Amino acid sequence: MPKVTIYSSDYCPYCHRAKALLQARGVTDYEEIVVDGQPELRARMAERAGRTSVPQIFIGDTHVGGCDDLHALDARGGLAPLLQAA
């Protein structure tokens, strides 16, 4: 399973929804980078994702996007193959 990275905020309901979906799809080990009060981490996220909102989710080197993007990818059947990629 490729490395999953999620940039998040402790108080973000969309972050919690995204993590719940990942867990429901069998992702138990992911890197979570909490950007609360960390302007340098938020700037790094924005540079990497091209967006400033949280969550921002990466599966391997693929930028999935935010919570709605993750759910849409799952609904299209694209999440499972991405998670299974070597």
Rank of each mutant, 00 (worst) to 15 (best):
P39H: 13
D36H: 02
T52F: 14
V34C: 11
E32C: 03
C15L: 08
C12A: 08
I59Q: 04
G37D: 06
L22F: 01
A20G: 05
Q23R: 15
K19R: 09
H63Q: 09
Q23S: 15
V35I: 15
R44H: 14
E47G: 12
D69P: 05
D61M: 08
T52G: 04
D69K: 04
E31P: 03
G66Q: 02
Q38D: 06
L41V: 08
V34S: 11
Y14D: 01
A18P: 07
Y14A: 01
R25T: 13
D29Y: 05
R51Y: 05
D68E: 10
C15M: 10
G50F: 05
Y14N: 01
D61R: 12
P55N: 03
Y11G: 00
A24W: 00
V27I: 12
D29I: 04
R17D: 03
A24C: 01
Y14C: 00
Y7P: 00
R51G: 00
A46D: 08
T28E: 15
D29P: 02
H71L: 13
D69S: 12
A24R: 10
I57D: 01
C12R: 06
L70D: 11
Y14Q: 02
E40M: 11
M45T: 10
S53V: 09
A18H: 11
R25H: 10
A24N: 02
D68S: 11
G50M: 08
S53A: 11
Q38H: 14
L21H: 02
V64F: 05
D61G: 07
S8R: 07
A49S: 15
K19T: 04
V35R: 11
A43R: 04
V27P: 07
A49G: 01
E40Y: 09
E32K: 04
L70P: 06
V64P: 04
E40L: 12
V35Y: 12
